[in-house]
Structures are given as structure tokens and as C-alpha cells.
Simulated assay, not measured.
Amino acid sequence: MDARMQQLIDDLRTDLVAHQDKSGLDRLRSVLARTEQAVKELRQLAAVYKEDPVQLIQLLKFVRPEIESYGIEEGLLYHLISNQPIATPGLQIRYYEEELTALQATLRLHAFYYQYYKNGFSELDELYFLPGNYRLSLPVPDVPLTENDSTPVSYLFARFRAIERLQRFIAEEISRLERQDLYGVNVRVNHGASLKWTGELVNVVELAYGIWLTGQLNNGNASLNQIVRWLEGSLDVSLGIIQRKFTEIQRRKRYSVTKYLDRMKKAIIQKIEEENE
């Protein structure tokens, strides 16, 4: 990527940090204004590359979507938070899950383009990212008419980036609310703390199943998913699809299937023996 392109992105990201202390409509307006400023600077740079299709594709496939995505994300986030119900954690979780489903529906609506974006394909770049070469075959509500210096697919790429970041935000909020619902208090994890799980992730899964199967939380009423979310937040890890890691535990041949718990048991017994000597 051209150094000037990267500088535009870096400057925007740095400036947006200053808007994090703002909230509501004030934050939305300031982020949109700064993003629009970056787009204007981008147009000036695009004029330089007007006769260079390789650089122009880079600009409209990667740089402009990255810049525009922050404004799109902020608009989506504003409406998400504004419409959040004042309710119990369970009802708020349901609200976020419904919003997550709606975002996924948007990605499915543009499934072909999303797969092109997600897989980093390039075969149709000249068609998709050179202005004037392509128009979407079917008009859809969330793809606006683009300027002569952009393309519909470039805008879609910006929207995909914004939606992916918003999905991660919603997933974190659901995780936080599940912990709040689990304990009846708002448990916020300080990810800047010094404690972080640095062992194998499969060991956390083994621990999660052990806690769940022996009913150690909420009189045995805590679900496996709640326990996993709690451990992820407390230990600052992401376990992904734990069923896959549990399959890994089941397939252990050389060692005991409860290898980590066995190590814990052995270490505790050894510590007791040392103390008794």
C-alpha cells in the first residue's frame, strides 16, 4: 500500500481516539465530520492515481472502505445504543441477539460480495473497483448511489468492515450481560490487568466442563455457555467453538483425557506432601 494511503488511515485512527470520551449524538456528528474530511483528502489522492489502475484499485478496495467504515460503524452503533431497552440483562441479551441476527441477514443479502471480500479474491477487481466499470445488477436499500470517484462494491466493503466490528462489540456486550445475569451484579473485566491465561486454551475448556458437570456455580444451574463466557472474560481469552476443543480432549490417546485436571491434582498432592514433611 502506498505510504500516503496508509498515512490517511493512520491519521484518521489517531484522531478518532479523541472522540471516545464523547457520547450520543455529539460523538456521532464528530466522527462523521472527521471521516468525511478523510474522504475528501482521499479524493485528492485518487486524482493523482486517476491513470494508474493498480493504485486506484488499492485505494477503492482497501483504503476508502477502511476510512468510510468508521462513519458507517458509528451510525450503526448510535442507533444500536439509542434503541437499547431499559430492561433486565436477559431482555437486553435478547435485544442484542436480534440485532446480531439482523446484521448477519445483511451479510447474507450480499453473500457473493461478502465472500469476495472475506476470501480476499481479486479476479474481478477491475470490474468492481474502477469507477464506471460496474453497477450492481439489482438495486438494494443499503447501497446508495456512489460518486463518480467510487463504486458500489467499494461501499459494500466499507459496510462489511463496519458490520464485522459491530458484531464483535455486540458479542462482547452479550458476554458482559451474561456474566451480569449469572451473578446478579455487573462484572466488568479489566483487560489491562496483569492476570491473563497463558496456558493452552484446551485446558480452559477442560476446566469449564469440569465446573459445569460438577455443578459448582449457581447450585448447578449455570449453563456451559455461561461458564465459558465467564472464564473468557475472567482469563482474557477467546475459546471459539468449545465443542471442537472438547472433541480434541475426547481424542486424547497418549495421555489421560483429563490431562490438565490430572496435573492440577498431582501438583496439589505434591504441595500437601511437601508441607507435611
Rank of each mutant, 00 (worst) to 15 (best):
E68P: 05
Q84L: 08
I86L: 08
I67T: 04
R176K: 06
E232F: 02
L45Y: 09
D52A: 07
L60H: 09
S23R: 05
G132L: 08
Y113C: 04
T258P: 08
K50M: 12
V143T: 08
I93V: 11
R135W: 04
Y128R: 11
I57G: 05
H79K: 13
D181L: 13
I170C: 00
Y183E: 04
V228M: 01
Q6G: 05
E41A: 08
L25C: 07
A105M: 12
D149L: 10
S137T: 11
L239R: 02
I81R: 10
L201H: 01
K196C: 03
V17L: 13
R4K: 10
K50D: 15
G210M: 01
L28V: 03
Q6P: 04
E73L: 12
L59K: 00
R176N: 00
R229P: 01
P89M: 00
T151A: 01
R179G: 11
Q44E: 14
K50A: 15
G233I: 01
K196G: 02
L76V: 02
V39N: 14
T88D: 00
Y209L: 07
L177W: 00
D11N: 14
Q84I: 06
R108A: 11
L177D: 00
E274M: 13
V39H: 05
F62S: 11
P141H: 03
Q7C: 12
Q92R: 03
